[in-house]
Amino acid sequence: MSFLFYTAVGLIAATLGSLVGLGGGIIIVPALVYLGPLFLGEHISVATAVGTSLAVLIFTALSSTMTFFKQKRVDFKSGWLYFITCGPGAMLGSYTTQFVNAKSFQLSFGFFMLLMAILLVLRDYMKPLNIQWRIERTYTDGSGRTFQYGYSVLPALVTGLAVGFVSGLFGIGGGSLFVPVMVLLFRYPPHVATATSMFVILLSSIMGSFTHLGLGEVDLWMVLGLAPSALVGGWLGAQIASRLSSKKLLWVLRVTFVVVSVKMIWEGLYLTA
């Protein structure tokens, strides 16, 4: 039963996560917290779920980044810039997890997921802001298409810090914030934003995982159980992103976010009452 649970959760989370640049942790964390007692026969603390999820994201992001790299969709130059603050931010967020109790976490995570669902809906209707950034980039992908977008160093560093902190705190990778900001604020083409986001997630997840590991918040057996299917899911999601429209899967993800967020907010309010 545990083998099937790990395989299903790792595969679904990694596939959907790499498809839209989210990382997949936003599925792994609630799955471990809510379904762990049923399928694994043990209660999994919030801190352990977050730390374990962030460790699994290393495998998801590695697999998808390698696939996107072969497709020439990763903008490594801007990715390294984001990582300057995203990495330390992930460590800070990971360290902060130990001070957040389960009740507060449920409320915070529930509202955060609801915000992500709203951003994913608005992503289809909002046009990128027409801002002339100091650094202009021209990027040609593997199919020969050329895109122009830009950013400035300070806004990019602030974005990286915010995303890194959220990533370490919630164990979700941070791509759910990265991709909308990169597309709407900096005018990245969506597929380049997704691929570059996964590269930054790979680096920040490594740093955040070391912090959680030092705090004893990573279950290595769970990581070993989830990692194989996460590797496959990371590759699969990147393949789907390059060949098929993600609109239908995005709507499945949006509905999932809303359902889980409502559940976590309701239980958080009930528990704190």
Rank of each mutant, 00 (worst) to 15 (best):
V232A: 15
A117W: 08
Q132C: 00
L184F: 01
L203G: 13
L271K: 08
A193Q: 10
L92Y: 07
M113R: 02
P88T: 03
W133V: 05
Y270M: 07
G89V: 01
S143K: 15
Y149K: 11
P37T: 14
L4M: 02
L22N: 03
R123V: 00
T272C: 02
P88N: 06
M182R: 09
A156G: 07
F199M: 07
P128Y: 11
L231V: 14
V56C: 14
A13L: 02
L57R: 01
G51F: 02
C86L: 13
F83P: 00
T60D: 03
A195K: 06
L114W: 05
K247M: 05
V50E: 06
T60I: 08
F39H: 08
L169A: 15
F76R: 06
G175H: 00
P155H: 15
K77Q: 04
A14P: 01
M207G: 11
M264E: 11
F68W: 01
V29R: 05
S245F: 01
I131C: 09
S204I: 01
H212I: 00
T7L: 15
A47F: 08
T67M: 09
F99I: 11
A156I: 08
A273Y: 09
A14H: 05
P88Q: 03
W80M: 15
R73L: 14
L57H: 07
R243V: 07
V262K: 06
Y151L: 04
P190W: 04
Y34D: 02
H212G: 00
R187K: 13
V74T: 12
L40E: 12
S104M: 00
S53I: 14
F105L: 09
G171F: 10
M116S: 12
R145A: 03
T48Q: 14
I206C: 02
A13H: 01
L224D: 10
M91N: 05
G174R: 06
K70H: 14
T48H: 09
A8M: 09
K248N: 02
L119V: 04
Q106C: 02
G142R: 06
F69S: 13
L19F: 04
P37L: 13
A47T: 05
V50W: 12
P155G: 09
S78Y: 14
A102H: 08
L114N: 10
F105E: 06
S197P: 03
L184K: 00
I58G: 01
L57N: 05
G216Q: 13
